[in-house]
């Protein structure tokens, strides 16, 4: 079964790289450029895992995760936080909002896939 990944990032570069890495690994990739778009996607699409940036315009990653968890439909949807922050606090904020795990940018492709497999069946 093909796993579907929603990637949320305001950087086209990052979206493109995620898309490349993930689709090469056999994932189906959906994209959104900010949290609001991400929520819009989740209204109509079913995905197996979400990868989201934190710093984004319109709706940032933290808000996005809170909203996703609050809908109740996505309580068991794994959400991975993409972060360049080496500091702990963004991760902690993300986790407090309901994030499942995190990926540190810049990511190496194999690591990315292994992290996804860590949170998805």
């Amino acid at each position: 079964m093909t796993l579907r990944v929603l990637t949320v990032d305001d950087s086209r570069t990052i979206l493109a790289m995620l898309h490349h890495t993930l689709s090469n690994a056999g994932f189906e990739v959906l994209q959104a450029e900010d949290g609001q778009q991400g929520l819009d996607v989740l209204k109509t699409e079913t995905v197996d895992v979400v990868i989201t940036d934190i710093n984004m315009p319109v709706m940032d990653g933290i808000e996005f995760i809170k909203h996703v968890r609050a809908t109740g439909l996505h309580q068991s949807l794994p959400i991975l936080i993409l972060t360049t922050e080496t500091s702990q606090d963004k991760r902690d904020q993300g986790k407090a909002a309901g994030g499942t795990g995190w990926i540190v940018k810049p990511f190496d492709p194999e690591k990315l896939i292994s992290v996804i497999h860590r949170v998805v069946h």
């Binding site: 305001d10 950087s11 570069t13 990052i14 790289m17 710093n55 984004m56 315009p57 360049t84 810049p106």
Partner: peptide
């Protein structure tokens, strides 16, 4: 300020990659 921060942040993120 947030927009400026995000712009620099994004440039840095890609550059790192």
């Amino acid at each position: 300020l947030n927009a400026v921060f995000r712009a620099i942040h994004s440039i840095k993120g890609g550059a790192g990659a």
